[in-house]
């Protein structure tokens, strides 16, 4: 059984620099301890109390409000370069209760409990009548859009066959005429041509593609537009060569270099190709 907390030492201001430091330690902790969805950033410190920790140190017991960013947790982009998801994109908030230990001027999170919740549909409607609202990730239209987008991405001339790893976000427009999805794919050891049996293709470690796609229904069919940014070292998969030709040297992309694959061949951004 835990002993009850001693009386608080002090109630500092929520915007006190030391409290902010503790809050940022908590944000970092939260982002490094979830493997799905998006990175969160600090929006507001709601409450804070400081307790003495025996034999040494202090515990910052805090309530903090976080906001979802557009960077996936597996995306190596530093949090400070990530954009906060806007209200028009149906923002998601995180509420966390955290205890952060301050010892030798270092802040270490001892525990955190968070709940995330999207903004209400009514609130989104107040600022934008035709904004797309978040949809369940297992919605039939969402699943269909992701399948179509992964197929479209693989149909482009990549060196690897990409497998779906996670559906991260989905939005339906008010009249459901289009579906917007965000998902994560990973390259495999199969080339797109020998991926007839995708189950036999093995994912390559620590390489991810972050994709956005829109499926629009139209008379007599549908349009799919997909684009992915791939991080990691994409290996060269040997391609069949005509007799006498040497091995093909395909693009090898250094870790952290984004490859933007839109409609058309993959384009490497940066000098590392």
């Amino acid at each position: 059984a835990r002993s009850p907390l001693p009386p608080p030492v002090r109630d500092p201001n929520c915007d006190d620099p030391e409290v902010e430091q503790a809050a940022w330690a908590a944000v970092q902790y939260v982002n490094s301890n979830h493997r799905h969805g998006y990175k969160y950033t600090l929006n507001q410190i709601d409450k804070v109390r400081v307790y003495q920790r025996k034999p040494v140190g202090e515990v910052y017991s805090m309530e903090i409000d976080l906001l979802e960013t557009t960077c996936h947790v597996l995306d190596p982009t530093p949090l400070e370069n990530c954009t906060v998801r806007q209200l028009t994109e149906h923002a998601v908030e995180g509420d966390c209760d955290v205890n952060v230990l301050k010892l030798d001027n270092q802040f270490v999170v001892s525990n955190a409990k968070c709940e995330s919740s999207p903004d209400s549909a009514e609130d989104v409607r107040k600022i934008c009548l035709d904004c797309a609202l978040l949809a369940p990730l297992n919605d039939t239209k969402v699943l269909h859009t992701v399948d179509a987008a992964v197929a479209a991405f693989n149909a482009q001339n990549h060196t690897s066959y990409f497998k779906l790893l996670e559906i991260s976000r989905a939005q339906l427009t008010p009249l459901h005429s289009s579906v917007y999805v965000e998902f994560v794919v990973g390259p495999t050891d199969c080339s797109p041509k020998d991926a007839a049996e995708p189950a036999a293709c093995n994912l390559l470690a620590d390489q991810h593609g972050f994709c956005k796609a829109t499926l629009t229904e139209k008379v007599g069919g549908e349009d799919v537009a997909a684009s992915c940014v791939v991080f990691g070292t994409v290996p060269v998969v040997p391609q069949p060569q005509p007799d006498g030709a040497g091995p093909t040297v395909g693009p090898t992309v250094a870790a952290g270099t984004p490859v933007v694959a839109g409609p058309g061949p993959a384009v490497a951004v940066g000098p590392a190709v």
């Binding site: 950033t41 929006n43 410190i45 906001l67 923002a91």
Partner: peptide, 30 residues
């Protein structure tokens, strides 16, 4: 211009400073 602050009989010593919480909103409130 308004003169000295009036003294309220029976008023005790100044209350302890109330911590300023919640803190600032960095983006927007959901």
């Amino acid at each position: 211009a308004l003169g000295p602050k009036p003294v309220i009989p029976g008023a005790g010593p100044a209350a302890p400073a109330i911590p300023l919480c919640p803190g600032r909103i960095r983006y927007f409130k959901v």
